[in-house]
Design a protein around this nucleic acid. Sequence first.
DNA 1: TACCTGAACTGAAACATTTCAAACTTACCC
DNA 2: GGGTAAGTTTGAAATGTTTCAGTTCAGGTA
Lengths: 344, 344
Amino acid sequence: MLNGRTPSVKDVAAAAGVSLGTVSNVMNRPEVVSARTRERVERAMSELGFVRNESARQLRAGTSRTLAYVMLDGTNPFFHDVAQGIELAAEDADLSLFICNSNSRLAREEVHLDRLLQQRVQGILITPVDPAAPHLDELIRRGVPMVIVDRIRNADSCCSVAVDDVLGGRIAVEHLAEQGHTRVAFIGGPESLGQVHERLVGAREIWESLGRDPDDLIYLPTETLSVAEGRSAGERLAGLPARRRPTAAFCANDLLALGLLQQIIGAGLRVPEDLAIVGFDDIEFAAAAAVPLTSVRQPRQELGRAAAQLVLDEATNPDHRHRQLQFTPELVARASTVKRARAL
Amino acid sequence: MLNGRTPSVKDVAAAAGVSLGTVSNVMNRPEVVSARTRERVERAMSELGFVRNESARQLRAGTSRTLAYVMLDGTNPFFHDVAQGIELAAEDADLSLFICNSNSRLAREEVHLDRLLQQRVQGILITPVDPAAPHLDELIRRGVPMVIVDRIRNADSCCSVAVDDVLGGRIAVEHLAEQGHTRVAFIGGPESLGQVHERLVGAREIWESLGRDPDDLIYLPTETLSVAEGRSAGERLAGLPARRRPTAAFCANDLLALGLLQQIIGAGLRVPEDLAIVGFDDIEFAAAAAVPLTSVRQPRQELGRAAAQLVLDEATNPDHRHRQLQFTPELVARASTVKRARAL
DNA sequence: TACCTGAACTGAAACATTTCAAACTTACCC
DNA sequence: GGGTAAGTTTGAAATGTTTCAGTTCAGGTA
């Protein structure tokens, strides 16, 4: 009677000689069914190899058991660490995590969001290409719990979790100034990315507050935040005549810094003697680089975990209030800026 | 009449003044509905903000629109590159990809698989903790399309995609022998991981076929394949008296090699003069390491893409035949083994 | 004995779709 | 003006769960 089909509750009920309501109870409210029947039903389940159909469950119960994270750039380990933090929180709440990757493309992000809406996920965590994109407002309008990760949203129309990027920019450049650098490059882009913009703002703020000439903080824009772009920025930099060339570079993330480092060393220059380099994020590979990389650390897992908790609160707590969590970044000094690296 | 609820086909049908079968047709067989009604329905949809409920669709249609990849180790960029390849293929087939991470724990893997079964995903790609684990047979028995990634399965009970790990081990050690090394360490573990085992087998094969003393190929086991374990292996190595110490190390993956490199340099030794290092996978960060890392390259994205194609074939092609695809690894020589690195 | 109680179980409705046979329209042909 | 074919549209069944108002029944109380 169950020819090939995967067995349903109905089959289990028949096999155990109970009604299908009872089978459902065994799964969802085991305490209301007597030990004897529960036992019987469970045996029937395992004999038939019953696996509950999540679509049907979700359709009827109206609630899904998954969270989703739309990450900005899958090639950047930073986001995977964030995802790992989310996953841990999801696991605690007995939820699955759907991971998508927009690859910094707005269109791709939109496709993913649309699909997630169709899946009726419980909540969406996202590091958006553009936090002002209308499709995010659309999510809010629909009442889908959402939290922005690694970006603060001006309006308090949703929760967000991030580090203070302006401060990050300040401490990076302050560190370089302390090391005696007087011409510094800021490498990063596109500037439309808030992360890039704010790190640059912080860099300029501290530079000027130290009484330096704004022209000595040189903005070297890049197309993306990738290792390859870092290398190409390195070419541009190495091409400059020595006296025009900055003596230090602050990169908007570690991938850029790693590419820059590679290129600079390949060109026969020394780090930090000819060029000091500071990255951002402090991904695991920063410490293992050609010259261990000084970087501005973000609490990556913590970011993810906090975000997940916020989205869960929004999903389950009726008097949820939107919050903007801000973490403090921290400078990790290594050999790429400090001559004669001591073990730290 | 639709107070707060998210609108359903029924609401759209009412708004457009057609039956709900027609609305469904607009979504699934637009060619059978006249341009005029189609237009009307589409307007109603966007006015109401209708979003199709994927659970209901899937329940009735019996088929899901997602693939899943259960990766072995989320901290290793190698697997994310594989995932990226899968994602590209999935995108072409208009499917979503569910990414899970077993973190090398069998129990976690089982939890994920169980959930995926409940979701009735179209197919499962997996880099298993243990390809012989019974829960994989269970999947096969159930008829869920599955392909093993980065591992070849002895039996042809399912498809698999991998590189020839034995060959990878051979070319790595052959390269070291060519560079004149006579004492070589193999670093990796646990040996229960097939990847580790076979790379070791290949290493031993070539070593002996070159007429070297088996005792001069030293196996230094590690607990996992992580940067931290690489560092600790480095400590053990650096602790050896210079004349007992191997002059080269072949690491079972790049994370290990990166950690080893870091530790060796930190201990004041030189690479490759005091210790030459070969990694495996050729992840993007290998080239950017302290000393650019020689590594055995796997075609990572290609692996993922091929695996996805196999699983789709199994899912859709009635006379699918299981296949074991094997790619050929390739040595990428860099400064960690070649003194006076030339630009390659 | 009649009545009540609570625990255990049942059965049908509901969820939002897809599918498909049947019904309805047109338009065209003889 | 009847017949037919092709093109549209309809309505109801079916998918596998959960939920909840009822039913049953054993045991206790008056």
